[in-house]
Computed example of a mutant assay.
Amino acid sequence: MAQVTLGNSEFDRDTAVVRRAPGRYDAQLSAGWTIIRAVNGGYLLALMGRALGDALPHPDPFSVTAHYLTASVPGPATLRTEVVRTGRTMSTGTATLVQTAPDGTEVERMRVLASYGDLAALRDDVRTSAKPPELPPYEHCLGTDTAPDGGSAIPGSTAIADRLDIRLDPATSGWAIGAPSGKGEMRGWFGLADGRDPDPLSLLLTVDAMPPTAFDLGLSGWVPTVELTCHIRCRPAPGPLRVAVTTRNLAGGFLEEDAEVWDSADRLVAQSRQLARAPLGG
């Protein structure tokens, strides 16, 4: 039996998994990363990434795709991994997360397909037209302690908000005072509340931890993820991250969210796209 963890921050403790046998890990889904009653999808992705990083011979997630089948709840969970292929520079594996229902039946919550490699071994040439989001200084952006009238910049009482240090660009936070822009944009500074520096694993959380762009479209309520694909492009430098998320099309009760994550060295360190169900509220 071996515990797989990388540090002693709250994020590391709550994403720790215990290897019971080859390809099988036990985990405890923390209530600290919930939205309403469901466990956040980015936190779950990082948890799965932890197990896959132990099961595969390469250390870093390159591309991770998750399908969320049913909402995960705080409590015990079992993760099962399978090595699909190993090569010299990359390896591929799958993982599933299951929980036991009150009637004793096993319920699969999510399924992941991931490719891992070594970010430190990548070439340092960069040719890009992408640019970091333009944000006001951190101190001029809105956090949960600076929202109007002392309210929260994230509506509702969500445990995950206490574990994150998010400062939203005022231009994309009008929804917090009932004046959404209608553009479907969310931008801001991002970090973990305990000051833990970002790494490839925590980036899997970051891409799914900002308030939903649906809020900027004038909608409210839970926005459950159906599918999420994340690309980790390089190991992030220490310091706060900048995150920009956009939605261009809400139709048929579903919307996409495209996210970019930039580090303190102005490098694009993660990209993601997810399909989510639009909330019913308006």
Results as ranks from 00 to 15, higher is better:
15 T>F: 00
17 V>A: 02
19 R>I: 05
23 G>Y: 07
26 D>I: 06
28 Q>N: 10
48 M>N: 01
53 G>H: 10
57 P>T: 09
64 V>N: 00
65 T>S: 13
76 P>I: 00
77 A>W: 03
78 T>N: 01
83 V>N: 01
98 V>H: 14
99 Q>M: 13
108 E>H: 05
111 R>A: 14
116 Y>L: 13
116 Y>D: 06
123 R>E: 15
142 L>P: 04
148 P>T: 00
149 D>A: 15
150 G>C: 06
150 G>N: 05
150 G>R: 07
151 G>I: 00
152 S>N: 14
160 I>N: 03
165 D>G: 05
166 I>N: 09
167 R>T: 03
171 A>T: 14
182 G>S: 09
186 M>Q: 15
186 M>D: 02
187 R>Y: 13
189 W>S: 06
190 F>L: 15
191 G>C: 07
191 G>A: 15
206 T>W: 02
206 T>R: 00
207 V>E: 01
209 A>I: 04
214 A>C: 12
221 G>M: 11
226 V>G: 13
236 P>D: 03
237 A>W: 13
243 V>Y: 09
245 V>N: 07
255 L>V: 05
256 E>Q: 13
258 D>M: 03
260 E>H: 10
267 R>V: 07
267 R>Y: 00
273 R>A: 03
278 A>Y: 06
278 A>Q: 09
282 G>P: 07
